[in-house]
Amino acid sequence: MSVPKLFKNPASALGLAIVVLFYAWSILEGTLQVLGYALNDPRLGWILLPYNPFETSIQNTLLPPSFSHLMGTDDLGRDIFSRVLYAAPIDALVSVCVVAGAVLIGGALGLTAGFFGGYADEANMRVTDLFLAFPALILALTIEYTFGRGAFYATLAMLIVWWPTYARLFRAEALRIKKMKFVDAALLSGLSRLEIIAKHFVRPSLNTVLSYFTIDLGNVILFYSVLSFLGLGQQPPYPEWGAMVASGLNYFPKWWWYSLCPGIVITIVVIGAALLGDALRDYIAGET
């Protein structure tokens, strides 16, 4: 099955469209925000947005969705749609950092544990067991409380609860690959063990992990939205999807759009990642 044919399936195409749109927008908007920050002109950050996401307006508080305000306005009269768009880059950045970091740490530990076996493997299994004994959210809350609040610490906390899953995944991959004939041949050929891991294990296992990786981008965004809902993301007035839902709770259900609109945006992005991940899994399964 070729790549273009893969996306003939409407669900896969939808997933691809959502994910590409989300990350493309985040890169664009994120660059503008950084640029605005660097040039000391924050206006650059909302040059593409319909409204200034920080501008409050007493006349326009809690307006329902309309053509001028697609998602309505919040209790301070700020345009929710602009705020949602403005908040996208941080979610994109956090999701990539956490999943990539978890793949690196989990990959390094999981592959070596699976390859060497014995005590290394035993230690790896017991430590990951331990981490998996905590509900991820609870452990992340405690970690973040201990170190400090904000997107950076949230990323750190998520990384700590995320890597064990990948360590498990990569270990299973290593065990699978180790059974194959060419590994023995490589060992006989006199390559060092680390060289063999680098040469024969990293690529194939990444292939398998790729679809998982994609789905996980959505999971991290979901998880981060919960942290931010609990006030552990970027601190106000910087807009955050989860935090927006939380502050909308006081105005629920009469001003429902305040909470629901950001919540629905999160859902759409997560669905996109899940659909794309499933499509990639089917594709990879079809290739091998």
Binding site: G218, L260, G263, V270
Partner: peptide, 11 residues
């Protein structure tokens, strides 16, 4: 599965 828990609860 893709909905954040708070959204499920709110709906």
């Amino acid at each position: 599965w893709s909905m954040p828990p708070f959204l499920v609860a709110l709906l």
